[in-house]
Write a protein that binds this DNA or RNA. Structure first.
Length: 256
DNA sequence: AACAACTCCAACCGCTATTCG
DNA sequence: CCGAATAGCGGTTGGAGTTGT
């Protein structure tokens, strides 16, 4: 698949678009062994038919250990508002105050949730007094500790790369993401999408979620990666594959 | 059930800032 | 100091998924 790169003669066009699981693994594997370095060189050396920018973006926003996936919590929402009021559209600066969140994620959140629907979000904000600092956010979320996925990744502290946590109940049904539930119901990857439409009462929100836009694709690609033919995997199976992969790598030099 | 409209977000694009020779 | 290369940032978009009719 995307790794047809760097062949002599007839240099293929640089790949664009969504990253595949294989590309992710190649990138993670390479960085774990060699560190980040120059992105253009890294892309070439890793054998990824991607430009350096694309690799950097993918790593920083999604693959880098510690990246936090899942819904923005009310505490984070309040912090974003407060920080945006003082910093403006300095997304990277705002992101510095929100551990594990990326500028891209915050930017998207601001544009789609706050800017577009200020009233609703303002109401939500009222229920949570703005902590506005990383420490305050951590404190406010502390006990319930929804920030780390149940499927954590040991020493790499990779967080929940592809899984969106179900556990921000205070936010209500933010979005109907629900594939792990379907996995539990025995739905395979091929039919997952249609089986998970809104009116499928057997797969309603509220239990295990996964980001839907990626879940099916990853599941299907994962099925070709997993030795035992896992298809529609649950979180545990998914992490088994990832952990096995990490287990094949040497201890990284880079400071993750 | 089918379709249209809407929502969300991953990824790209273009520009600026920084680093390096 | 200058120019090229690289990294970083913010804006924008395409497409998948969700919701409403």
């Amino acid at each position: 698949m995307g790794r047809t790169c760097g062949r002599a003669g007839g240099e293929p066009a640089v790949r664009k678009g969504p990253w595949t699981l294989e590309e992710d693994l190649v990138l993670v594997g390479y960085i774990s062994q060699h560190g980040e370095g120059s992105w253009d060189n890294l892309a070439r050396a890793a054998g990824l038919n991607r430009n350096g920018k694309s690799c950097r973006l993918r790593w920083l926003n999604y693959l880098r250990p510690g990246v936090r996936r899942g819904s923005i919590t009310p505490a984070e929402d309040a912090a974003i508002r407060e920080l945006h009021a003082s910093l403006g559209n300095k997304w990277s600066k705002i992101a510095e105050h929100l551990p594990g969140r990326t500028d891209n994620e915050i930017k998207n959140y601001w544009r789609t949730r706050i800017q577009r629907r200020p009233a609703a979000s303002a109401q939500q904000q009222q229920a949570y007094h703005a902590p506005a600092t990383a420490a305050a956010i951590a404190a406010s979320e502390g006990a319930s500790s929804s920030s780390s996925a149940s499927a954590s990744h040991g020493s790499s502290a990779a967080g929940d790369w592809w899984y969106v946590e179900p556990n921000h109940p205070e936010q209500g049904a933010d979005r109907s993401q629900k594939s792990v539930a379907a996995a539990a119901a025995g739905v395979d990857s091929g039919s997952a999408s249609s089986a998970l439409t809104r009116r499928d009462s057997s797969a309603t929100a509220g239990d295990g979620y996964m980001k839907t836009s990626y879940s099916d694709r990853y599941y299907s690609e994962l099925s070709s990666v997993a030795a035992d033919g896992v298809k529609m995997v649950d979180a545990e199976s998914f992490w088994n594959v990832v952990d096995n992969f990490w287990g094949t790598l040497p201890v990284p030099d880079a400071t993750f």
